[in-house]
Structures are given as C-alpha cells and as structure tokens.
C-alpha cells in the first residue's frame, strides 16, 4: 500500500536539501573547471615542471576515492589547526561546506582536465595550419579555432562529468552537510522505510540528471551549426 502522506512529507523534507545540492554542484563545477583548465594547460604547455605538476595532481585525485579526499581535507587538516589559525585559513577549513566544495572541485578538476586535454589534442592539425597561414596570432588562433572545435569535442564527456558531480555531492552528507542524500539518510534512519525514501530521493537526482542532459543537448546544438538542417532557399 502506498502511504501518500508519508511520501508528501518526504518530498517536502528532501526539497529542503535541494539548494545545498545545487550550490555544491554549481560551485564545484565552476571551480573545478578553472582547475581543469589550469591542469590541462600545464599538461599541454610543453614546460616540464608544469607538466609534471599537472600529471601529479591528476594522478593523485583520480587514483584515490573522493570520500578519502573529503576526509583528508575536513578531518585531516584539523591536525594542523594551530598553523592554519596562524595563517588565517582556519575559518575556511573549519566549515564543512567549504571543505566539501574544495574536495569536489579538486576531484572533478582532475577528471575534467583530461577531458579538456583530449579535446584540444583532437583539433585537426589542418585547421590550425590554416589559421596560421592567414596570419592569426596564437591567442586569436586559440580563441577562434581551437576553442570552438575543442568545446564541441569535449561536450559529451564533460556532460557526463557534470552529472557525476551531482551524484558526488551526496558524499558531503558524510561531513554533516544536509543536502538531499543527507536528509534521505536521516529520514531512512528515523522511519526505517528505506524504499520509499530512496524512490523519492532517487527521483530528485534523476530529474537533475535529465535537466542536465537537456541543457547539454541545447549547448551541443548551439556549438554545432554545421549539423543544423540546411537553410531552405527562399523563392525570389
């Protein structure tokens, strides 16, 4: 039997966690994007020190579980509390929100860096030569040729990465943040009605996933003018 009252209460409670889920997602995708761009640049720069630094960053953050990274930042850095206080950083690392955001951003940044790098490397050599041949300076070439072509190439993988960030924000619940999964866990522990709560919370995440997929399709269409239907010649 379906208990509609319980479902309604559950949905209302979970709705309270949505802003936190969304803000963690948006914040870490934005910050992670910056980190990824820096790391991808480091890998592609041809400078040995920045290449190795970027490699190390990507290797460590892709090779270890996100939950360990979160604990390392939130609980681990507590070990250095006096030093952090002296530097004025403690008010940042004391907050679970900022720690979760930082860990999520560092984590997704490492994965996204490889997506960016692959996309830049996929730009056909001929397109770059053609740009150089008509005298484009390097920055202009990057902005007008490399970036649009790479962006389109990166989009599907980048979209999957954003979706996995949405899911990853659920780990923030392990350091006391009450986003959707945190609230769901609390409700399950209180009511012991795991399935109903799971279905409601799952629906939230699936809805978010579908919204992102939809947005992605729109961006993809916008970035691929060559795949649109041909304009029909109007009769004179």
């Amino acid at each position: 039997m379906i208990d509609l009252d319980f479902l309604a209460t559950t949905v209302r409670a979970l709705l309270g966690g949505l802003p936190l889920t969304l803000s963690l997602t948006a914040g870490s995708v934005a910050l992670g994007g910056v980190l990824a761009a820096l790391a991808a640049w480091g890998r592609l720069s041809g400078l040995a020190p920045s290449d190795w630094l970027a490699r190390l960053y990507i290797f460590v953050f892709r090779g270890t579980p996100l939950l360990v990274q979160i604990f390392l930042i939130y609980y681990g850095l507590g070990q250095f509390r006096p030093a952090l206080q002296a530097w004025g950083l403690w008010s940042f690392f004391r907050e679970p929100y900022w720690c979760a955001l930082l860990a999520l951003a560092l984590n997704t940044g490492a994965y996204t860096a490889e997506i960016f790098r692959g996309a830049v490397l996929s730009v056909p050599h001929g397109a770059l030569v053609a740009g150089r041949a008509c005298g484009m300076p390097r920055l202009l070439l990057f902005r007008r040729v490399t970036l649009p072509l790479a962006a389109r190439q990166a989009l599907p993988a980048y979209g999957n990465e954003v979706i996995s960030v949405v899911k990853a924000t659920s780990l923030a619940s392990t350091i006391t943040l009450m986003e959707v999964t945190g609230i769901a866990q609390k409700l399950i522990a209180q009511s012991f009605r795991a399935l109903e709560v799971f279905v409601c919370a799952g629906a939230f995440y699936l809805a978010l996933t579908f919204v992102i997929i939809g947005a992605l399709r729109a961006v993809e269409a916008w970035l691929s003018p060559d795949l649109r239907p041909r304009p029909v010649a109007r009769p004179a």
Partner: peptide, 14 residues
C-alpha cells in the same frame, strides 16, 4: 543517475 551512497543506504537500512 542515483548517487551510489543512496543505494548503499537503501540496501543497508532496507
């Protein structure tokens, strides 16, 4: 589409 943690909670508590 659903967080893995949620699946673990479902199986553990459920």
């Amino acid at each position: 589409g659903v967080p893995d943690l949620l699946v673990i909670y479902l199986l553990y508590f459920g």
